[in-house]
Write a protein that binds this DNA or RNA. Structure first.
Length: 297
DNA sequence: AGTTGTCAAGCTAGT
DNA sequence: ACTAGCTTGACAACT
């Protein structure tokens, strides 16, 4: 198991998600922002290695406006050396990387422009991982998308749209069960038709399922990951107390975390802790896993 | 220096 | 009808 947290580390004093307003776009602004983001990403990765976190999600704004028509710069070429150097650090330390484009990426949208923008955004994410020299175990995950009042039709659009994606996107493309529209069962069905792996989100599964236990759900999803895809990625969070259903908890609940680890004993997976306080909870979780001999102390 | 409204992009369910 | 929630955080214009 590799353990990680998404996008942000608040103990370092820099962010790899720095961006700016579209209005203030300039070539110089873009280059200096990306430079800053890459420098900080390297620092976060170093901190992660020191603290035993070998799984990390890189935030989408690493290259702001990368998929927007305003961006004419060949950033892959411009940051070639540095991207490769970050990638080499990741490989040297046997780290696992994922990315998760945001809610605007909907390849099953009815509006063709939304699909086209989504495709561009997916291409940006994959180009970035490619430029770092990472293999097909570095994944880019999205939810299936909207229902638009007709789930069958929307699923059909999803499959047709996926088939048109370029190969370098397909090789990293992964779907994740969400808490409202497309649950594990839907994702497994799509996985069978499209031959894509399924991220198992434990919290979303608790919100919406078809009676499968967490352990059984995880094992079903695990089968969708082939050798080239690497170990299954699992997302972990809990329900925030006295908040509406689906909102992620602020801090990790150690009793529930121990319970989850107990339930899934004997199954190997890479675990992403989607807790709002990020590395703070991740440190608590790794403490528990060290005691249980999942990791060396 | 600290506070507050706003930001490229969309959808769903809860209130 | 409205808006929180989703990886919401971080920028930028205002006190």
């Amino acid at each position: 198991m590799k353990l990680g947290y998404p996008c942000i580390n608040r103990s370092i004093g820099c962010t790899a998600n720095s961006t700016f307003r579209l209005k203030s776009y300039s070539k110089e602004r873009l280059l200096s922002t990306v430079q800053n983001n890459l420098d900080c990403l390297q620092k976060i990765l170093e901190w992660n290695v020191e603290h035993g976190f070998l799984f990390f999600r890189i935030g989408s704004p690493l290259v702001p406006f990368a998929s927007h028509p305003i961006c004419k710069i060949d950033w892959v070429k411009h940051f070639k050396e540095q991207l490769k150097s970050v990638g080499d650090f990741i490989k040297k330390n046997k780290m696992r990387i994922s990315m998760h484009p945001d809610q605007f990426v909907l390849i099953n949208a009815k509006d063709k422009r939304i699909v086209e923008n989504s495709k561009k955004e997916l291409e940006y994410h994959c180009k970035l991982l490619e430029a770092m020299g990472l293999d097909s175990t570095a994944k880019v995950m999205i939810h299936v998308g909207g229902v638009y009042g007709d789930k069958e039709e929307s699923i059909g659009r999803f499959i047709r749209s996926y088939r048109k994606l370029p190969a370098f996107v397909k090789k990293r493309f992964v779907i994740e069960n969400d808490e409202r529209c497309y649950d594990l069962k839907d994702c497994l069905m799509l996985s069978k038709k499209m031959n894509v792996p399924v991220v198992f989100d434990k919290f979303h599964h608790e919100c919406k399922n078809n009676g499968e236990s967490v352990k059984h759900g995880l094992m079903l999803a695990k089968k969708t990951w082939k050798r080239k895809d690497g170990l299954i990625m699992v997302h972990y969070s809990d329900q925030k107390k006295s908040a509406r259903k689906g909102s992620h908890s602020e801090h990790i609940d150690l009793r529930q975390f121990r319970n989850f680890i107990g339930q899934t004993k004997g199954i190997d997976f890479d675990l992403m802790l989607e807790i709002k306080d990020k590395e703070k909870s991740a440190l608590k979780a790794i403490g528990i896993l060290k005691k249980l001999k999942y990791f060396k102390s």
